[in-house]
């Protein structure tokens, strides 16, 4: 940010460079048309492999119970759409309730994750302070410990707080940056941003929060979008914590409810379970499609400066 004259010159140069680049790109595009078709063929083949299991799941959700295991063909001998209608009400509580519960837990958790983890990541990535590497190492350690062995001490702790059988053990830790994965992810992206941005802003008298809010976050939209997607998917599908902390069936989340269908040793309802599994993917897919745009846009277009 020096004088406007140089800015203008640079702008003209950049413009000129962009024009040349554009022409070059047009040439290259022609050369690449064949390559592109090959690429599509390759991607479509891979897509089929990637999608087969999904078709299988969809097919299984429509099959009669005794066809799911017996036959390898995808096409059901008859379509049992009632797996969906009956499955929704198969449990003592309808799935409407489970979806509402899941929505509450998930939306709060995603907000908590994004806010608290980006705070911590900003501190780790952009601010220097005493004990930074020590705390960073501690944070990484929480990623490494196998979850199952802290389960019981954690349960006792939440029990003493009187939080068992509420959503608090599922939600509160997420407002306290409990998921180090997201901190680390954001740290890696925040560290990529040019240091001059902060310095210039600091000289202009911006507070650290202003820098975080007005510079770091907007420039890290791809990272935040990725974090939002992961966070939503993982919380939505989370099973172990709800299993341990929720007792009342009225408070169950969708993944927990799905586990009520199966009885390894007795009467199961596979068709209905698959039908409900398919439905449980719908909100996540919608969210994915909406939020992945964030990843596409981001800073790439502006070229950062």
């Amino acid at each position: 940010m020096k004088t406007s004259a140089t800015d203008l010159e640079i702008a003209i140069q950049v413009d000129e460079a962009a024009r040349v680049a554009h022409e070059l790109r047009l040439k290259r595009d022609k050369r690449d048309r064949n390559g592109r078709i090959l690429k599509h063929i390759f991607l479509i083949t891979v897509s089929c492999v990637m999608l087969y299991p999904l078709f299988w799941l969809l097919a299984s959700s429509l099959k009669p119970e005794n066809e799911i295991f017996g036959s390898l063909t995808l096409w059901p001998s008859e379509f049992r759409f009632e797996n969906y209608t009956k499955g929704w009400y198969a449990l003592p509580i309808s799935f409407t309730v489970f979806y509402v519960n899941s929505a509450i837990v998930t939306s709060l958790s995603v907000i908590g994750n994004l806010v608290s983890c980006s705070f911590a990541a900003y501190a780790f990535a952009r601010l220097s302070f005493t004990g930074r590497s020590f705390f960073f190492a501690l944070m990484m350690m929480t990623l490494m410990i196998p979850y199952h062995v802290v389960l019981i001490p954690q349960y006792v702790q939440f029990l003493n707080l009187g939080w068992v059988d509420t959503y608090l053990p599922l939600v509160v830790p997420r407002f306290l940056a409990s998921d180090a994965f997201f901190i680390f992810l954001m740290v890696q992206f925040f560290r990529q941003l040019p240091r001059e941005l902060d310095e210039a802003a600091m000289i202009d008298g911006c507070s650290p929060f202003k820098i975080y809010w007005a510079i770091i976050l907007p420039l890290s939209l791809p990272a935040m979008g990725t974090a939002a997607i992961f966070s939503l998917i993982w919380v939505w599908e989370d099973f172990l914590a709800p299993l341990i902390y929720l007792n009342d069936i009225k408070s169950y989340t969708v993944p927990l409810a799905l586990r009520l269908f199966l009885d390894q040793e007795g009467q199961s309802a596979y068709g209905q379970m698959f039908a409900m599994s398919v439905l449980s993917l719908v909100p996540v897919v919608i969210f994915f499609v909406l939020f992945q745009r964030l990843i596409v846009r981001g800073i790439a277009t502006s070229g950062m400066k």
Binding site: N101, L108, T166, Y167, L168, V171, L246, S251
Partner: peptide, 16 residues
């Protein structure tokens, strides 16, 4: 932040 946590706690404690 604290407000958010408080609100979250209140909201999430209710249904269960």
């Amino acid at each position: 932040l604290l407000g958010t946590i408080g609100a979250a706690a209140a909201a999430s404690a209710l249904p269960a």
